[in-house]
Amino acid sequence: MSEMRARLYRLGAQSLAKILTHQDRVPHSPTYGCFDRNFWHLRITDFPSGMAQEFVLPLALAHAHPFEGNPFHQNETIREWIRAGIAYAALSAHKDGSCDDYYPFEKAAGAAAFSQYAMLEALRLTGLDPVPFLPFLKLRGDWLGKHQESGRLSNHEALIANGLLRLAVLSGDQDFAGMAERRVERLLSWQSDEGWFFEYQGADPGYLTLTIANMAEIDALRPDQGLRPAIGKAIDFLAGIQPPDGWLGGEWTSRNTNNYFPHGMEVCGAWHPVALTVNDSAVAAMDPAPEYDDDHILAHHSWSCLKAAIGWCATRPKAAGALPEAGLSIRRAGASTLLVATKKGGSYR
């Protein structure tokens, strides 16, 4: 288990140096703080992607938490670059607080939600003064709270609700808490009786782990919302479909992704232990892990892996089918069953 936790730290931290190469770190530059290198450096695009400002969150996690091989911990220069990243998000946003992602005037809810969540978390983790950024964060929060995408992307809906609730805590404005509750109600209406939440037209287990993570964080802030039955049902769905090799991504999912976001399963493991069993199998399968180092969205998995490692539950459920006193281990995959006698040198049937 300690090796899997170390693996998560490595997976989360391996992109930190690259993230810095994406940022304009020259203080007198007009694009100081921008993480979209295609815009400020390569000049491939004539507008910055708002999603890129999400990169402040992996840096903030590394700044706030010590772990092996982490030179960013309590580094004041890193803290300044995080502040610059939040400032540039405010500078480059549209007048209504929204931002673009892949094309100009797109006003992408996903980019706005991911970067908003990242900035709110970065402010909390680093202790930066939020006051200069509150007008912008509230403007974006108001836009996110009222904007509705055309498709059903449950992970976006959960992320928007999570960000709105965190903004309500930071700003003291309970209107954002009301917006969050309405978005949660909408999200719950998208849950199948089978436990999964819609990603466009179907079930995507990888993105479902991000939906679960955001719902888990909302539950931690507002247990009165009563989200645990819905979260537990979603986790049970994942446990029921998880293949023998543990990996939940691939072309059989609704969005054909190899995504897996582990941090929410650790949060839920305290009250729903099967989440840890799912996480153990999935993290064990990340050897080697999928290639997540896409320049555009490399922060997604970086901060999720770091959060999972930081919040790792020390007490894990026993492996399914393991009977150590009897010296037996049982593994089932579909119609096949493997019986192993661990006290007889590995005799099996």
Rank of each mutant, 00 (worst) to 15 (best):
Arg5Thr: 02
Arg7His: 14
Leu16Thr: 05
Thr21Gly: 05
His22Trp: 10
Asp24Arg: 02
Arg25Thr: 14
Cys34Ser: 03
Trp40Leu: 10
His41Ser: 13
Phe47Lys: 01
Ser49Gly: 08
Met51Ile: 14
Ala60Pro: 07
His65Gln: 09
Glu68Tyr: 00
Trp81Thr: 03
Ser92Arg: 03
Ala93Gln: 05
Ser98Phe: 15
Cys99Val: 15
Asp100Tyr: 11
Phe114Tyr: 14
Leu120Lys: 14
Leu123Gln: 04
Leu128Asn: 08
Leu134Cys: 05
Phe136Ala: 09
Lys138Thr: 11
Leu139Val: 01
Arg140Met: 07
Arg140Lys: 15
Gln148Ala: 15
Ser150Cys: 07
Ser154Met: 07
Glu157Ala: 15
Gly163Pro: 09
Gly163His: 14
Ala168Val: 03
Ala180Val: 11
Glu185Arg: 12
Glu185Asp: 13
Arg186Tyr: 11
Trp190Ala: 08
Trp196Ser: 01
Gly206Tyr: 05
Ala230Phe: 14
Gly232Gln: 10
Lys233Ala: 12
Ala234Asn: 05
Ala234Asp: 05
Leu238Val: 06
Leu238Trp: 11
Ala239Val: 07
Ile241Gly: 10
Gly246Leu: 07
Trp252Ile: 02
Asn256Pro: 01
Val274Gly: 03
Leu276Pro: 13
Val278Gln: 11
Asn279Asp: 09
Val283Ile: 12
Met286Thr: 04
Pro290Gly: 11
Pro290Gln: 10
Asp294Thr: 12
Leu298Asn: 00
Ser302Thr: 09
Trp303Ile: 00
Gly311Tyr: 02
Thr315Asp: 10
Leu323Gly: 01
Gly334Trp: 07
Gly334Asn: 06
Thr337Met: 15
Gly345His: 12
Ser347Pro: 01
Tyr348Phe: 13
